[in-house]
Design a protein around this nucleic acid. Structure first.
Lengths: 189, 189
DNA sequence: TTGACAAGACCGTCCAGACGGTACAGTAAA
DNA sequence: TTTACTGTACCGTCTGGACGGTCTTGTCAA
């Protein structure tokens, strides 16, 4: 890969996310993104030759960031319960006021296939958690609950108060950590 | 032949849902819906004067059906645990192969405000469940988990196998069904 | 019973505008 | 000179929506 100015790419990606969040997922036009990023339409098309590539960039950046955050969180927590780490990380993500990934709706509207990388990522994550958690029931409940929390954040549904969210996370951590002794290295698949 | 006066509306609504599911949420055009419903574009515009009205019809129908299903389910179950009833009902919904409400993405793309009726509905539902459930922790976990299940169904993510789904639902019912057990320790076997 | 007529339900066509994308000439820095 | 853009002009396609016309049904006077 050539050494390019990463500045524009990132700015464009951020601008796209902003536009999607503020103007609605259906109003994500190239012109809007370009103007928001402080870049001409030609410049945008220079970085992302097509709208699909823009979306792909959004997805890849999201996945990259997520994976990285998860890795460092796991590293910081030593060999502790990976499910608990995932719960905490996700809860933190959902604590943000702005739905961080509402551009996803734009991507889906553009082409549902943009979801496949995210789907496989989640699948792998779930499989990994299955290998690292000894109680399937707890894992299922926690994983799906986190998925629910993420979805509620994405849809910006304000059903849960802050207290309730905290109580929920505490309960989930309890569920994740309660079965017998938490052992980090159980069976691997 | 009788003029299928109210019939057309339903047919159009169903066609819209089908088109959204099959052609992708971004390809929900009036022409596609009309042809799918076996109706001309003019006929469609007669029933729904604008695309926004179509979406509104979709939302209202969805909410109406949901409410009705919940009511009858609650009626059939006597005065039993409403949370358990909600869990069962939602699990059944998610058992369907086709994401029943993928038109939601179309609606969001069109205008995010279409979500507000759904949001307030969910809010009311949650408040009602809060009033009818004595253990807030169990309610939180179950409600969010169901939300997660719904979201996974909506995004058509095939992470959970059928067995896992069933195990999950059983676990949730277990959590929901301990009416007097305070301090959510109901997860252990 | 019949014929006229109004209203409702639906069809087919047309159009302005927006959008994604292309082409290309210019430019400033490294 | 090359790289990395900017800016403008433009094209083809698609879409929502308007509009006028058509067919069907119900009503009612004669």
């Amino acid at each position: 890969m050539r050494a390019q100015r990463p500045n524009s790419r990132e700015k464009i990606l951020a601008a796209a996310a902003d536009v999607a969040r503020e103007s609605g997922p259906g109003s994500l036009s190239l012109e809007a993104v370009a103007s928001r990023a402080g870049v001409s339409k030609g410049g945008l098309l220079y970085n992302f030759p097509t709208k699909a590539k823009l979306m792909q960039g959004l997805v890849e950046g999201y996945l990259r960031d997520f994976e990285q955050a998860l890795e460092t969180a796991n590293g910081n927590d030593g060999g502790a319960n990976p499910l608990a780490v995932y719960i905490k990380l996700s809860a933190n993500d959902c604590e943000e006021k702005q739905p961080s990934a509402s551009w996803i709706f734009s991507a889906i509207a553009e082409d549902p296939d943009f979801m496949t990388p995210i789907k496989t990522f989640k699948q792998q994550l779930f499989e990994r958690l299955k290998g690292e958690t000894n109680d399937l029931k707890s894992l299922l409940v926690c994983y799906v609950a986190i998925e629910g929390l993420r979805s509620m954040n994405l849809f910006d549904s304000g059903v849960l108060s802050k207290d309730e969210r905290e109580l929920l996370v505490a309960s989930l951590l309890e569920i994740a950590g309660s079965p017998d002794a938490e052992q980090a290295s159980g069976m691997q698949s």
